[in-house]
Design a protein around this nucleic acid. Structure first.
Lengths: 255, 255
DNA sequence: GCCTGAAACTTGCCTATACAAGCTGGATTC
DNA sequence: GAATCCAGCTTGTATAGGCAAGTTTCAGGC
């Protein structure tokens, strides 16, 4: 309901310059690829020091609106692909946010030797020990999610002593590695009979499956989770925005 | 396959400070909520000027790793929800990237008066003119997507003269409003017979549906698109990373 | 004990200057 | 004509100083 970019901070000089440039860009006045006034020109226009202009433009560059080339100038960035930013939260938190009551049933919980496929996924030698858990999450006694998870216990100390019904693996892992990386795949599937039964799904009801690989900052796979939701009771949603780059990636010419 | 945060730019002084702080955070040495050395302390440690430290910390704040409070200090940001960053590209581009051949069939193409529900979606008075199009996209003669789209022609001049088979609405809209905002919802559905037939789906095959509302920067709804994919032929995937905030949002305490 | 106010700390922002490094275009030279 | 070099533009980075504004703490006065 709220329109985004409306409350731009024009209280500061940087904010004024930022609003000016961003306005020209999103308003379409400066087309992608067009040259933006140089720092010197903006200094003359706004009467500020060059550093002030520089930081305003640098911020817009980090956000993906501008592309700057040393020696050449500043340009409106080509419109890159849009990106869906969807939050992936703990089921318990998500339910709590809606004011619901969360409960969790443990379906499976064992330590087993990694199969060939699992070992490849974790980039470990086959036969390595892996913790496997399968949990059924309820919202107000209605099943909402099956969590099928593999964890490398060697990389997550203490995880073998965790009681999944008391503390979620998501929260536990979050505590151990607060800033993980990884990839996720979202697909529509027709789950097998047992899954349909556990989630109390209708005869023709599809499921939304989120498969998630979580890595430590050093690249090692910590956990692989398959989250299965009934299609009529769960949707994934998020905002759409241009992709944003980290400060370290500015130098990277990815095309 | 590539591990992220490894190639941090330590070539500059800012990069050194950034790498030092970020390393402590992702390494778990500084837990969320912990106090980060003040700018003055880091100045003493690295022997740089305060502005250098300031900009390094400010960048990490914009990326969501730190939280800074004027008068109090700098703290490791609480681990916020992870965010799935999934690219939403033009079908034609996506197919071209895979080296496939793209073709498009127009199923419906008309201008009609908005129903009550549609008018509410677009925040327009009922009965307003809306362009409606329904397209079937093929990859190498295999149907991959049904695009069901509504557009407000008053906000997108020239769209009524567009031939959807020649230029995609996605590309056309991108040219008109390069930096749109909006929301998207992803769900698993069991589509009706006609859709199943058009997409040549199996008898029990579910579909992945992406519903997308695109707004102009001023908040007005430009287009609503429903994209339907066969569940066995399409997945949505993306990277997982902490949410990133725009520079303008730093002041916003969202909790 | 309680309130007040000043001091000391924090971050936010701006200025002015300086040097490095990269690109462009034109004058010079061969 | 073609290659070369240099002046003049661009951005990237760092420095040193200053003021504003917010929080905490503690001493002093009531």
């Amino acid at each position: 309901m709220e329109s985004l970019r409306l409350r731009e901070p024009t209280s500061s000089l940087q904010g004024e310059i930022r609003a000016f440039v961003l306005g020209k860009i999103v308003g379409g006045e400066w087309a992608p690829g067009a040259r933006v006034p140089s720092e010197t020109e903006l200094v003359a226009r706004f009467g500020t020091s060059r550093m002030t202009v520089h930081h305003a433009l640098k911020a817009l560059t980090a956000e993906g609106y501008l592309r700057r080339v040393k020696g050449l100038g500043t340009f409106v960035a080509p419109p890159r692909a849009h990106v869906l930013h969807a939050r992936l939260t703990d089921v318990a938190d998500e339910i709590a946010e809606r004011g619901g009551r969360h409960r969790c049933e443990v379906l499976d919980h064992d330590v087993r030797c990694a199969s060939a496929a699992e070992a490849a996924l974790f980039q470990l030698p086959p036969g390595e020990r892996l913790l496997h858990a399968r949990l059924l999450h309820f919202e107000n006694d209605t099943p909402l999610q099956i969590e099928d998870r593999l964890i490398d216990p060697a990389r997550v100390p203490g995880v073998e002593d965790l009681d999944p019904a008391a503390e979620s693996y998501f929260a536990f892992l979050m505590g151990k590695v607060p800033y993980p990386a990884g990839r996720a795949v979202v697909r529509a599937v027709m789950p097998p009979m047992e899954t349909r039964f556990l989630l109390r799904m209708g005869p023709e009801e599809p499921a939304l499956e989120v498969e998630r690989v979580t890595r430590a900052p050093d690249g090692a796979v910590l956990t692989v989770a398959r989250l299965i939701y009934p299609g009529t009771r769960y949707v994934l949603s998020g905002e759409i925005a241009p992709p944003v780059g980290r400060a370290g990636d500015i130098a990277g010419d990815d095309e």
